Amino acid sequence: MKASQPYQPLLFRILHGVTGVSLILAILTAYWTYDTYDGRWGRIPLPTYREIEGIHGTFGLYTLLIFPVFVIYAFHRGQKRLVQSDSLAKLTQIGTPIWWYTLNRWMNTLALLALTLALLSGKMVDSEWLPRGELNHAWYYTHLISWVVMVVAIALHLLFNAKVGGMPLLLSVWSRQVREKDSPAHWSAHTAKWWFAVQQGAWKTWFQPMTVPILLELFMLLTIVMAWVLSSI
């Protein structure tokens, strides 16, 4: 591998890939569901397929299940890609490289926030509403809006990553290159070392100090928990 070629950790590529593919399929089936059951704000001539609502829900569930793991990874091992405690101050350096990198971190974080709200609202939508023609529920409207925001957030995420890293950065998440220290053969040892640290009390410092990134992580994880609890109630 060339030294200039961006390298993404294998675990990041796996989590990002599974989340991304599940999300894209959820977005595509979300529009097909809207086109089949709603279409009040325009539609395209897609075939009517009544089972599409259940397929969309399946891909949404896949995304919901993998997302918490991705969030934990993103805010710990991948924290440099997200909003930092000094990100607001760096936005004043308009036009400089750090300004673009900071904007990119904001867009990455925005994509995670948009997906969090989309998953919450989607979990609150009853699967029987659309087949019964019940299109005026507040959670359904919220879910529609959240998916529009999600599409815009993904577009900005790709745009700013292309700006700071070009096509090599965009393609690096699909690379099959694996460095020796990143090999899955070492994962069990890393996990054992992490678990030993937890048993020794390392968890006591996880949220100290309470920074903006930590608050965002807690917000996303608690929102996903709330989605499961509220939908069950």
Rank of each mutant, 00 (worst) to 15 (best):
Q5F: 08
Q5K: 06
F12S: 14
R13G: 13
H16P: 02
S22W: 09
A30F: 13
T33G: 13
T33D: 07
L46W: 13
Y49C: 11
E51I: 08
E53G: 10
G57T: 09
T58L: 14
G60I: 12
L61D: 08
P68T: 12
V69E: 10
V69P: 15
F75S: 07
H76P: 09
G78N: 08
K80E: 06
K90I: 01
L91A: 01
I94D: 01
T96Q: 12
P97W: 13
Y101R: 08
T102E: 02
N108E: 03
L115S: 06
L115G: 02
A118E: 04
K123A: 09
D126L: 07
L130W: 06
R132K: 14
L135Y: 08
S146L: 10
V148L: 15
A153F: 11
I154E: 05
I154S: 01
L156Q: 03
F160Q: 01
K163C: 02
M167V: 09
M167G: 01
V173E: 14
W174A: 15
E180D: 15
K181W: 15
S183H: 14
P184N: 11
A192S: 01
A192P: 00
W194V: 11
W194T: 10
G201R: 04
M210S: 03
L216I: 11
L218V: 05
F219V: 00
I224T: 03
I224F: 02
